[in-house]
Design a protein around this nucleic acid. Sequence first.
DNA 1: TGACAATATTCCAAAAGTGGAATATAATGT
DNA 2: ACATTATATTCCACTTTTGGAATATTGTCA
Lengths: 93, 93
Amino acid sequence: MKSEIYNKKAKLFKALSNPVRLEIIDFLADGEKCVCEIVEKLNYEQPHISKSLIKLKEAGLIQDKKVGLNVYYSLKTHCVSEFIRCIDVVENN
Amino acid sequence: MKSEIYNKKAKLFKALSNPVRLEIIDFLADGEKCVCEIVEKLNYEQPHISKSLIKLKEAGLIQDKKVGLNVYYSLKTHCVSEFIRCIDVVENN
DNA sequence: TGACAATATTCCAAAAGTGGAATATAATGT
DNA sequence: ACATTATATTCCACTTTTGGAATATTGTCA
């Protein structure tokens, strides 16, 4: 069913429709980071960062890797930053 | 301020985080359409379509052109469909 | 096993989004 | 001016999202 496709895509965009999650994406563009590094970088509570990361992961945008106590997250694609760059050129408001 | 940038981008993604609005974008990829054509194509009330179009326009994703009684909407960029295509390749869940 | 550090989960109130119904506005023709 | 058609706006109940606080889980080391 076609509407299911749109629902799925909408979820992906929803995952990106939050400034904290976008900032995480931006930070991860620099390379793999553990949760504690992200918490330190952004000014948010650890549980909130954790929830944000899980949302991004569920959307298929990032992946995680467990190393001892730490969990490292990294981008699965650079489409997002490319998309933002493309949009930037077009925007004029 | 940097957080303002993320807020602005988040609004853009928020505009795309809805199946109806994505379907509109998809339909407009085919070329300029007036509101009545979009209402006819999608199965939603005219006021809802109208609100969706305004949201997409405010996000800078589409533009409008008034011709008599009709208002024609068209894409300002094809970044969105390109982004979706890119994401499709990566997704594996 | 027990203490500790890193990350995840649950709970919750406030804020924002959703989409239908009714209504308003704007442009056209008679 | 009036009727008509296309589009926009307002109102509202409902659902979802947001982000902090408290708590749970998981892995490590002594």
